[in-house]
Design a binder for these strands. Structure first.
Lengths: 168, 168
DNA sequence: CGCGCATAGGTGACCCATCAACCATCCCGG
DNA sequence: CCGGGATGGTTGATGGGTCACCTATGCGCG
């Protein structure tokens, strides 16, 4: 990461403080991700994506969502959701149902087995999130982190993928 | 994410502030990741992992590392590194060489093409990291984030994967 | 009504990551 | 000098993610 010189386009390398910040972010990102998904898998037989889908489904009273809505709620593309639902269907965690109002549509419904799975998984997962992350922040830090990250997310959203900078 | 009641084991759900913090973290994580890797791919024809490998290789003067060292430097398992090196080898970005000192060993060496690739990619990538993330933090925030994240990483490291909590 | 575009969803190919073996070498003790 | 564990690295199966493309339905407009 620390490259020197190389002028010509004057790349503006990161300052040491920026580097450190960025690397610390990456480190948390990688480790936390790995730990949480391995725990989830080991303790509940669910992958991170499985968990996300089931959480998405349980936030509606009847445990059903249109496929694309569900995809949007966890920020996936429809094709990923379609593939994933197919796999989860085979494992009996969710089911597809036809949609009367819209002939092209499909409902994704959580099955009793799916409900059991997430009800077993959720408390442990929440514990892990606390234990591995939240518990190490003071309330002040938690608050600041929230504000910063919400701001970053907002900026990411009104800066459309292909614009912003650089000709490309 | 907001589940209620469900006593019996008294799961300690997240407080609203904690939920917000956690969700803001996840949002940044997903979006930033997606954006950065798509940019890298589009502008330089490198994936995130490709970039990480090349960066790892260029931090030594002769652009070579033992496979396992390289894996450790980017926090991968050896098998992932082996597979990835195989693919990058086919694309001419790196090469494998036999290791004289240790008969089982293998060197991974960056090729001239690899060097070109990363020298083209790095400035753009750094710009993107700034533009999408660092530029939205004040120096104070940057600093606090660094401290918090370094602390979290440290805790993750001395809390071994299978210990810490919960019977299982 | 019929054209055409937009939208909901599915599919297959390809790449990537993980896991569980596996092989070779090194090194230590006897 | 041999047996065995540790170490360095590879491989193949499998599940997951992305992309490009395809189908079918909905919907507006002339």
């Amino acid at each position: 990461m620390d490259k020197k010189g190389e002028p010509g386009a004057a790349p503006r390398w990161l300052t040491p403080a920026e580097q450190r910040a960025w690397r610390s972010y990456l480190a948390v990102h990688f480790r936390l991700d790995g730990r949480l998904s391995r725990l989830l898998q080991a303790e509940s037989g669910l992958s991170g994506p499985d968990y996300a889908v089931l959480v998405g489904l349980t936030d509606t009273p009847d445990g059903r969502h249109r496929l694309l809505d569900l995809a949007r709620s966890v920020e996936w593309e429809k094709s990923r959701m379609s593939h994933h639902v197919t796999r989860m269907e085979k494992r009996g965690l969710v089911a597809r149902e036809e949609c009367a109002e819209d002939g092209r549509g499909a409902w994704v419904v959580i099955t009793p087995a799916g409900r059991e799975a997430i009800e077993a998984a959720a408390p442990r997962h929440v514990e892990a999130v606390r234990h591995l992350f939240l518990d190490h922040l003071t309330p002040t830090e938690l608050d600041l982190l929230t504000r910063v990250f919400e701001r970053v997310t907002a900026r990411l959203e009104n800066d459309p993928p292909s614009a912003g900078r650089s000709a490309g």
